[in-house]
Design a protein around this nucleic acid. Structure first.
Lengths: 141, 141
DNA sequence: GAATGTGATGTAATGTTATTACATGACATT
DNA sequence: AATGTCATGTAATAACATTACATCACATTC
């Protein structure tokens, strides 16, 4: 299983990577690259590429996830997560909160589906959209 | 198009929708909105919005899927598919071919994960990236 | 210690994807 | 004729992402 042995490494981040990481950790929602750029202008960021380069590395390191359905990025909230290739996200359409979870059954099911089709799976994108528990509660309250 | 075929197109398409649909059906790969625009310039298309409006409707009708990880669109290849909300895609990184499949176990697993978190699931995005069977074969040949 | 390699950074320009705003046209209902 | 609704046309702009090129910091090695 070469697709799931990504562990969070004790990486030393560069200044730009560190600034982006800190901004993402402070956020309560996913941030777009351009939101990050605006947040970091005070720290000397001037161009999109500065953000994108930092994000690329952080994603490589397994510290950040890209959410394809939002074109946005979140800090990985799963401290021990080894299965970066098979993380699922639950994204609230109302408040924007993102829950991250890994599930062995899900990973197994996806692997089984792929192998049944002769498909060599490299990475899975699983993004669930709906209402988070809090927003369900407040909408029925 | 029988009456019992209630998910897929008892719908009559407008001219623009029909042109976009035909282009997607003829394609062997997902097409971006702007690719579609270029393909359809000979048919009088001049602006992105003409494509996006047609795509929005076609997606509503369940005739077209949007692939979030590609920002592109494919014709639904699953004639009877009623479970548009839980379709999984296998996207070949080499040839671009897209396989579409529905899997009750997968749908059930996602529903279980959501409900265990109190998340009210509305739509699932599942996109698997890797190498399709053909490309695996030719890379090892 | 000069030459070289590598990785991070800065800057500008451009490319790609998607939406907003507003005007018009087709057609059915009243 | 007046109205409502849905599709369409056009222009402009917003939002997301990459390419190309120059420079800097620092380590290795000759």
């Amino acid at each position: 299983m070469t697709m799931s042995d990504h562990v969070h490494e004790p990486v030393s981040l560069t200044r730009n990577q560190s600034l982006v990481m800190t901004a993402l950790e402070a956020a309560t929602q996913p941030l777009s690259a351009y939101s990050l750029l605006d947040l970091l202008r005070g720290n000397g960021f001037r161009a999109p590429l500065q953000v994108y380069r930092a994000l690329d590395k952080l994603v490589d390191f397994g510290l950040v996830h890209r959410l394809e359905s939002l074109n946005a990025f979140v800090a990985c909230s799963h401290p021990g997560c080894e299965t970066h290739a098979t993380t699922a996200f639950m994204i609230c359409n109302t408040c924007g909160h993102v829950g991250e979870l890994t599930d062995a059954d899900l990973a197994g099911r996806l692997a089984a589906m792929a192998s049944a089709s002769g498909f060599a799976l490299e990475k899975s994108t699983v993004e669930l959209r709906g209402l988070c528990g809090d927003c369900v509660s407040s909408s029925t309250a």
